[in-house]
Amino acid sequence: MSSIGYPTLFFGVLIGSIVPIVPTGALVGAAAAVAMTTPHLSLPLVLMFATAGAGAGDVTTFAVARLGSDAAVRWLARGQRPERLISARERFDRRGWQLVVIGRLVPAGRIPVLLAAGTVAYPWRRLLPATLAACVLWAVAYALLGVMSGGIFDSPLIATVLAAVLVLVVTAVVNLVAKWRRNRSKVES
């Protein structure tokens, strides 16, 4: 199992970090649940491979915007007023590492933050440590959901399904709270 489990985890998280078609949090939670209920996977290695896949995906996403041609950057910035880009550059100058970490932890926040960082030429030397910290926190958070489900059930199948469901529920709740806060701030403005 480990001969296919770790590569599947790494490449699943990598692909899902670049193109959000794979529920990467559910994948990490499921792998952690398997690690808790069987001897086939090790939790520290699950964390390592999940972090590595997420980091490689995030750096790739950033690189597309950062190293892309002028046409690619214009396409990413399409519809944005010049003052918004200036504002984004100033936000990244002040607290870019926080934006990268929060973008990784908030569902659907990672790709826009990384593309914005690349578009405003956020420096690699600041991005890489922020990405590493964000990916470690993200992997631990989703693995904890798998650890919880693995601690509740002895069956790897039930623990894996529960971990995936927990991840999806947590993601849905975070999205609902974010939507509620956005709507509330619009009403108050």
Rank of each mutant, 00 (worst) to 15 (best):
T160K: 01
A143I: 01
A141W: 10
A141N: 05
V173G: 06
S155F: 10
T160N: 02
S155D: 13
P156F: 04
V136E: 02
A130V: 11
N175L: 13
A159Y: 06
T160E: 02
V174I: 15
L127I: 08
C135L: 00
V140S: 03
I158R: 11
A163Y: 05
A143L: 02
L166G: 01
L145P: 01
V169A: 11
I152H: 07
V161L: 15
L144C: 12
A141Y: 13
A143Q: 06
N175D: 12
V136Y: 08
I158P: 00
L145M: 14
L145V: 07
A164N: 00
A159V: 05
L132M: 10
L157R: 03
A141L: 15
G151N: 13
L168S: 14
A172C: 02
A139L: 07
Y142C: 08
V173Y: 13
C135D: 15
S149Y: 11
C135K: 00
T171K: 13
V174R: 07
L137C: 11
G150T: 04
A130K: 12
I158F: 05
V165I: 14
V174W: 10
S155V: 02
L145F: 13
L176Q: 09
V177Q: 10
T171Q: 15
A163E: 01
D154C: 00
S155A: 12
V147L: 07
I152V: 15
V147I: 15
L166N: 08
L132P: 03
A143F: 00
A141H: 12
L176R: 14
G151I: 07
L127H: 06
V170I: 06
A141M: 11
V174N: 04
V169G: 05
V170W: 07
L168T: 08
I152P: 04
V169R: 00
A130S: 12
S155R: 08
L137G: 14
A164G: 12
G151E: 13
A139R: 04
L176E: 14
W138V: 11
I152Y: 11
V136N: 05
A141D: 01
P129Y: 06
L127V: 04
G146N: 03
V147T: 12
M148Y: 10
L157N: 05
S155L: 08
A130H: 07
V173D: 03
I158D: 02
W138Y: 14
V174K: 11
N175T: 02
A172M: 14
V140F: 09
L137D: 06
G150Y: 08
I158A: 06
F153R: 04
L157Q: 04
V165N: 01
L145I: 06
G151H: 04
V174H: 09
L127N: 03
S155C: 08
L157V: 13
V173C: 08
L176Y: 06
V136P: 10
A134F: 08
V165G: 05
A172L: 13
P129D: 01
W138F: 09
A164Q: 04
M148V: 15
Y142Q: 10
T160I: 02
Y142M: 05
Y142K: 00
A163H: 07
A143S: 06
V169C: 04
